[in-house]
């Protein structure tokens, strides 16, 4: 980080929380916190208790399971890439510029976070579907989105994009504009400032945002079901496969659920250990 050391120390005003004196937490907080933790962990334990460990290897390596897992990983990767491409500019605009209606725009952009995914799926359907706003335009170009893997990627990107934008916007605000201003006064053009100063500074926030988006993509269910359909190897991602298996083979559904939980835990742990939540969220 040559840029950091080149800047005088007094500019670095971010307080170091590790050495700050901590005020004690009220004692009654602990039992409630424990109850909260148990509330989250107990259902996972309940599910793990249901797993048929003897048949677990066969259940999770069946053709349908592997097809679903493979599709989930591929689509989540593609959607995360799309989130990065679209999310970085969105976060930059929200954090580094001001224009009338910005607050409203931010709320609207974050809408997929609070919308039920099924509603998101319907919205996509009425936009990209064959009879949707843009559907006939796409069809004229020979692009068929309905029932294709593209539809899955669109659904996942729709629900995951706000995660990346939020994380990155928080990181951008925390990082501040001093280094960027310095680079600009030294004659760097905006694109160069972005590439050599801004993005390296917020890389942890970008990383954790990307990983969170990836996790959200992996878990996407409602919008995919509504918008993309369900066909093995094409649109049936892991959550859809679990939903279907549950009809006939509860053991397979539980085994696959555990796989999804493990993947999610790995992903969340990755964010925690690598980037840390604090810079990503802008709370230090």
């Amino acid at each position: 980080m040559a840029t950091t050391t080149a800047v005088p120390d007094r500019v670095n005003t971010v307080p170091d929380t590790a050495t700050a004196v901590r005020a004690p937490v009220p004692y009654w907080v602990y039992p409630l916190a424990a109850a909260g933790a148990i509330f989250v962990l107990l259902p996972l334990a309940g599910m793990a208790a249901r797993v048929n460990w003897q048949e677990f290897p066969q259940l999770v390596t069946s053709e349908a399971s592997l097809a679903a897992l493979g599709l989930s990983l591929r689509t989540a990767t593609a959607s995360t890439a799309l989130c990065i491409v679209l999310g970085i500019p969105m976060a930059l605009v929200l954090a580094r510029s001001s224009f009338p209606g910005q607050q409203v725009l931010r709320s609207l952009v974050l809408l997929p976070l609070v919308l039920p995914p099924v509603v998101g799926g319907l919205a996509l359907l009425y936009t990209f579907g064959r009879r949707g706003l843009l559907g006939s335009t796409f069809e004229a170009f020979g692009l068929q989105i309905a029932f294709s893997t593209t539809a899955v990627v669109l659904a996942q990107t729709f629900v995951a994009l706000p995660f990346l934008v939020l994380s990155l916007e928080g990181a951008l605000r925390t990082a501040g504009t001093r280094y960027e201003a310095a680079a600009a006064t030294l004659g760097a053009r905006p694109s160069r400032v972005l590439r050599t100063v801004t993005l390296p500074l917020v890389l942890p926030g970008l990383l954790s945002g990307a990983v969170l988006s990836f996790a959200r993509c992996l878990g996407e269910f409602g919008a995919t079901l509504t918008f993309a359909g369900s066909l093995q190897g094409v649109t049936r991602t892991l959550p859809l496969e679990i939903y279907l298996q549950r009809e006939t083979d509860a053991d397979a559904a539980v085994a696959l659920s555990l796989v999804l939980v493990v993947v999610a835990v790995v992903v969340v742990t990755l964010v925690h250990s690598r980037a840390g939540w604090a810079p990503a969220l802008g709370v230090r």
């Binding site: 309940g46 599910m47 609070v114 995660f163 969170l212 996790a215 679990i242 559904a253 659920s257 999804l260």
Partner: peptide, 29 residues
């Protein structure tokens, strides 16, 4: 900054809850 921080924290919590709901309800037990 504070407001953004708070809303992002809330959002991430919400998102986590969504993710958990999907994973758990899918088990259907």
């Amino acid at each position: 900054v504070k407001r953004t921080a708070r809303s992002s924290l809330l959002a991430v919590l919400l998102g986590g809850a969504l993710l958990a709901t999907t994973a758990c309800s899918a088990a259907g037990q």
